[in-house]
Nucleic acid binder design. Structure first.
Lengths: 250, 250
DNA sequence: CGCGCGCTTGAGTTAATTCAAGTTTCGTGG
DNA sequence: CCACGAAACTTGAATTAACTCAAGCGCGCG
């Protein structure tokens, strides 16, 4: 308790007590403002302007869609986080991706949804009709570009995940996952999913995720403020570790 | 040239000596003719009719494109097999996919190619200019549908690969891989890639691939006629094994 | 304040790897 | 056409990374 105190403050409740650590890591909060002026409008913005949609609010843990659904909806994530997963015949779960703000679920689904979707945390969704998206694909050049771009981005995301699964040690998988989740400069990152979620995404057990996180801590690459708050204290080191040969420490 | 001649007779040189096994497995050679009447024209056919292209012949082992290429080409595989791979900083290779007839390489590449490509066996390619594909996307509805369909199919392929990597034992990975490679009814299948290729695709070592194949043999699911010729003697059993809980035999 | 879920940590086990021969297959040149 | 060498494949033995099982802790929620 007492030793936690100096760690607590920032974007969220916990982080508010940590201005020193923030400064020490030297990331200006103002740096993020420039990203607002994006060169290309975000695909989700384009779709929401061009097409009719309804917003939907879902609570943490709530189901959004089920694998096999052919109800003809495409979802855009406005805020929060959604896990997209499948369950195997023997009951194990694989989380194919975590869809954060700006991501789509159900694009190019070719008939039926291939993953179930649940909110990891409270999330806001934009719901489109698949038919209207497909229609706009024919008539609206901006929508076309947005959809193609999103699909290509999803492909890139999957390729990264594949590389992790095929070629990395558990420690490296967790390290790479952290880098993917905490893409912005902000060094303190709130991990809203559980260890089991992370494990089911990375193809390892939840115990292994826990151990890997602590390995990263003990090598000075990250700090765990509490179970859900990770400070990336050495981003460069993390990146090197992911790309490096010796997969696991000591 | 002359050595091509004898290949036109049957599926392959080796298989000609195995008519009894073929009959025994009871797959009528005529069954495959119906697939010629496809409901939708194949994406590659559509592109080749709508766009200018040049054909390119590549020998086994020959490089087709390099990761990072921004030379603006999209490749369609007419015949043969192409491995699409990356090499990590420490020199290990990951084969993201094997592109067979009908597959595209470089669609939706968003700037630069994300994988190098090499022919596994002698292959025929159709080479398009990326710019002309992108142009047709705007003006040609059939091309649009074909490209979207191909991208969606690639996504499905990757998802299957991901599931394998994340959730299957080495025996199951190899079993599922065989099912993916030998999709047609034809029970005897020529595997043109090496064990190392398969291993680099499935995220296991080449020794493990070899062992897994022999496990499958000893459980009566497949037969190895020689190193490269696999007979799927129990397709249903293979499928069950892939979906089943007990990942590995004995 | 207590209960439950999520997280951590340890000990023993196992699947897959690494290393190391040995064998087969294939292509090439004599 | 055969012999040779290289590449691919197989198989075994020892090692190790990750898993399973199990216990204990801590935080948050009712």
């Amino acid at each position: 308790m007492a030793d936690m105190e100096h760690k607590l403050v920032g974007p969220c409740t916990k982080c508010r007590h940590l201005p020193d650590l923030l400064k020490q890591l030297g990331q200006a909060a103002t740096a993020s403002t420039e990203s607002a002026a994006s060169p290309l409008a975000a695909p989700l913005d384009i779709l929401s302007e061009a097409l009719p949609s309804v917003t939907r609010q879902v609570q943490a843990g709530q189901a959004i869609a089920l694998e096999g659904d052919a109800n003809g909806h495409v979802y855009g994530v406005l805020s929060g986080l959604v896990r997209c997963f499948r369950v195997t015949a023997d009951g194990r779960r694989h989380i194919g991706r975590f869809a954060g703000p700006g991501s789509f679920i159900g694009l190019g689904m070719l008939g039926a949804l291939r993953h179930s979707a649940e909110a990891v945390e409270r999330s806001q969704l934009l719901v489109f009709r698949t038919a209207s998206v497909e229609n706009a694909l024919e008539t609206n050049s901006a929508v076309r570009a947005a959809v193609l771009r999103s699909m290509a981005e999803e492909l890139i995301e999957r390729e990264r995940a594949e590389m992790r699964l095929a070629r990395m040690s558990s420690d490296q998988r967790v390290a790479d996952f952290l880098l993917e989740m905490c893409r912005d400069e902000e060094p303190i990152c709130l991990i809203t999913m559980t260890r089991a979620d992370i494990g089911d995404h990375l193809g390892v057990t939840l115990e292994t995720v826990s151990r890997a996180l602590h390995h990263l801590v003990s090598h000075g690459l990250i700090e765990l403020l509490d179970a859900r708050h990770v400070a990336i204290t050495n981003r460069r080191g993390l990146q090197d570790f992911v790309e490096c040969d010796n997969h696991c420490f000591g």
